[in-house]
Design a protein around this nucleic acid. Structure first.
Lengths: 217, 217
DNA sequence: CGGTTAATTGAACGCATTCAACACGAGTGG
DNA sequence: CCACTCGTGTTGAATGCGTTCAATTAACCG
């Protein structure tokens, strides 16, 4: 039997070529200031987006104000791929960012070819893999494991020494289904165990990969 | 009876016609005994499945044995639509059941037409909607709300008086990220509040739809 | 019937939350 | 340069929700 929890390469692999091609040629670029909405919860699904620079988060609010962060999207990532017809999650600029978008109808008429359909399907599937991992994370992991898993995801994206944390503690908490206090406690705890090190609150470095992996299991 | 439950109709809508057509003509039927595996975690994604009779659950195990149930699939539902190349969740027969399957390659060569691609995309998207709801449920809801939401889902599927619970408490717990004891407590509590009624442990009836909706919010 | 598994209930515990106070850094203006 | 503020992050103490462990009851099936 192979590893019960294989790492998800969906997060690091680039989006399918056919889509990036269309994006490059037809995409319209737009800047979004920090904490502004790119599309709202309930909006029609009309565009397909790609992060050019900055970071984007998707969020969903319950009627009584609790917030769940869906995911974080980095430069090169596609987002806005939702079942439709309307967005169940809103997308917001986590930092000042530039986003490129094309109408989905444009994408569709553009090619009419199977290649493009497959590309969209592939991107959607990738999104699904993330969601599946997220479900496991939220359903069956302790606070310590959640935070460890989160740091690991980030570290995988930005290989090498120091890893930046573009999001604040509240965003992490709402992604992990925790409170900011718990997130903070787990971070200091992981640091105390010499598994990671935080030179500042928004930057860290993994000291013991194996220990982090064990935790994220 | 029309319900104002805001969440998704992905659960009740039938799968796209193009796919059911292919399924009907080319699908191979197979019986699976209760609690046997239909495909395993880690298996190659090769087939597309449809429940004919009985109920199927998808599950995922962490290396230390914790279990997360992905979803439950009823007659008419498609499953096995995973990002691939390998299954991140296993599929098991929750009860004795009959499942129809076709090779994905067959599906692909069959048509080569956009219609079929769209059908698969649509089915995948629907799967995604479920996952998104599941993420919100697991991340930001109390035990009481989780259980209420779960009962509501079931009741929506089987409109009318009595609703059957095909799964045991353990499956419910692993779906909701709780323990069997907590699930049981919440059920008796909801019954005590006259919101639902359980004539037996595997059958219930909703007494106050509005109250249930409020909770599931 | 007994024998077995599933479900419920009770009591004690513990993890994460809540509420509150404090520390830190960046920006502003005296 | 220091004082002040504001936002963000950390830390502490007390509470509570869900878990854990254990015992009881109900359902199922020979």
């Amino acid at each position: 039997m192979t590893l019960a929890y294989p790492l998800n390469d969906a997060r690091v692999a680039p989006p399918p070529a056919a889509l990036t091609g269309v994006m490059d040629r037809l995409g319209v670029r737009a800047g979004h200031a920090k904490d502004t909405e790119i599309y709202a919860q309930g909006d029609d699904v009309q565009y397909l987006y790609r992060v050019v620079s900055g970071v984007v988060r998707t969020t969903r609010l319950t009627c009584d104000g609790r917030r769940q962060v869906g995911d974080f999207y980095y430069p090169g990532d596609l987002f806005g791929l939702e079942p439709g017809p309307d967005h169940r999650f809103a997308a917001e600029a986590l930092s000042d960012c530039v986003v490129q978008s094309v109408r989905r109808t444009t994408v569709r008429t553009m090619a009419g070819d199977a290649e493009l359909d497959r590309a969209i399907l592939e991107a959607t599937s990738r999104e699904m893999a993330r969601l599946q991992d997220h479900v496991l994370l939220l359903g069956r992991k302790s606070a310590r494991e959640k935070v460890a898993g989160f740091l690991m995801q980030l570290a995988q994206r930005q290989p090498g020494g120091a890893v930046m944390l573009p999001m604040g503690r509240q965003d992490m908490a709402d992604y992990l289904g925790l409170t900011i206090e718990t997130v903070s406690r787990m971070l200091t705890q992981l640091q105390g165990d010499l598994i990671v090190e935080f030179p500042s609150s928004r930057r860290f470095q993994v000291k013991q990969w194996d220990a982090l992996e064990d935790l994220a299991a």
